[in-house]
Write a protein that binds this DNA or RNA. Structure first.
Lengths: 122, 122, 122, 122
DNA sequence: GTGGTCTAGACCACC
DNA sequence: GTGGTCTAGACCACA
C-alpha cells in the first residue's frame, strides 16, 4: 500500500476500509484485521492504525468486542452510502459544476470523457 | 469570507482569486488588492495573504511591481484554464467516476442533478 | 445480560453477583453457578467469569471447595455492606455533592427526583 | 496536578478544563493554554494534551483557530451543563438510589451527610 | 492474543 | 509561535 502525501495516512487507511465495505469485500459482522496485523501488513505504525479504527468506530462503521477485535457494523455499508451520497450531492457536485462552468466544459464533453474512461476500465 | 477547515486558508484565498480571474471579474493587467487591504477585508493575518500572493506569483498568475503592488498576468486566464483543465480531466474526473460507481450513481442520475442545480443557479 | 462499555466485563459480573447477595437472592452457604454455566448463560468467555470469581474470592465474598464449586461466604452480605458503605460515604458521596454543586442542583431538587424515581420503581 | 490511576490522564485533563469552564474560571471566547504550555505546566506529554483537546473539540466545547490556538466555544458552559445534567439524572442518580437501597441508607441519612460535608467545605 | 494509553522525539504546514 | 501527524517503543488490563 502506497500513500499520497496530500492526505493523512490514517484517513487513507479509513478510505481503503470503507471502499472494501462498499464493494463488499468485507461484510457486516466480519472481523477486520487486528491493529497489529494491519499495521504490519501495510507497514505503518500501530498507533496510526489505532487512530483509523478509533475514527471508524466513532462513525459507527465498525465496533469493538473487548479483547477480541473490531467488527464491521450491521448497517455499515448502507449507512456509509447514505452519508457519502448526501455529501457527494451537496458538496462535491456543486463544486464540480462550478468548475466545469469556469473551465468551459459542458455536459456533452463530460459525457464523452465518461464513456471513454468507463470503456478503459472494463 | 468564511473558510472551510478542510483546506488551508491561503489556498482558499488563491482559489477565490483564480475564480475571479476565470470569470473575468478581474482581468489581465488589473491591479489586485494590496496584501494589507485584502487581509483587512477578509480578516486574516497579512502573512497568510502574503503566502497566497507568493504562491500565485510562483504559478505566474500574478506578478509584482516593486513598491506598487501585484497585477494579473497577461495570459493568466488562458494559462490557468489549460492547467486546470488538464488536472480536472486527469485527476478529478476519474475520482468522480469511481465515487459514482461505488455510490451507485449512474450518468443519468448525474445529468438530472446537473439540470436541477443549473436551473437553481440561473 | 448486556454490558456497559465504561466498565470491565468481569467487574460488571462481580457487581451483578454482589447485588444478588445484598438483596438476598443468593444467601450465605449457597452454591453459585459454575464458571462454565455462568459463562454459557451470559455468553462470555469462561476466562472472564473465572476472573470474576477469583476477584470475589480475594475479597472473601465467595470461597471455593475443590472439585465442587464456589459458595457464598458466611458473612458475605454483612462484610460487603460495611466495605461498600464506607467507600460510598468516603468517595462516592463527596463526588456526588461536588457534581451537584457544579450543575446547580440543590438538595431539594435531589429529593424531588428521589421521590419520583422511587415511586416509579414500586 | 496529580492523576488518579483509575481514569485515563487525557480524560482527567478534560474534566479539569470542563470544571474550569463550569465554574467560570475560563469563559466563552477565552483562549486556553496551547498544547505545549499545558503539557509543560502539568508535566505530561504533549500528545496526551493533544488528545484531550481533540476530544473536547469533538464535543464542541472548544474550537480551533488555525495557527493560533484553542478557544472556549460560545455556549460551552450551557451545553456542558445540559449534557451533564441529563446524564447525571438518567444514569448517575438511579445508580445512586439503587446503591442506597442495597446498603440500607435512607434519604434522611443522606441529608445528614450532605449537611456535614457541605459545612466542612465552607 | 486483543485494544488502549502514554512517553519521547521528530517533522511538517500554517499563522 | 500554533496545531497535527507519525514513528518507535513501552506498559497495562482484559478476553
Amino acid at each position: 500500500m502506497d500513500f499520497k502525501k496530500s492526505q493523512t495516512i490514517y484517513m487513507q487507511i479509513a478510505d481503503f476500509i470503507c471502499e472494501n465495505i462498499l464493494s463488499e469485500k468485507i461484510k457486516a459482522g466480519d472481523k477486520i484485521q487486528s491493529v497489529r496485523e494491519m499495521a504490519a501488513s501495510i507497514q505503518v505504525n500501530p498507533n496510526t492504525v489505532m487512530r483509523t479504527y478509533s475514527y471508524l468506530q466513532e462513525q459507527e462503521i465498525i465496533f469493538n468486542k473487548r479483547g477480541i477485535g473490531y467488527f464491521v457494523s450491521d448497517d455499515a455499508a448502507q449507512k456509509m452510502k447514505n452519508i457519502k451520497k448526501e455529501e457527494f450531492i451537496q458538496s462535491y457536485l456543486p463544486e464540480l459544476f462550478k468548475n466545469m462552468d469556469l473551465l468551459g466544459i459542458d455536459f456533452g464533453d463530460l459525457e464523452k470523457i465518461y464513456r471513454k474512461q468507463s470503456n478503459g476500465s472494463h
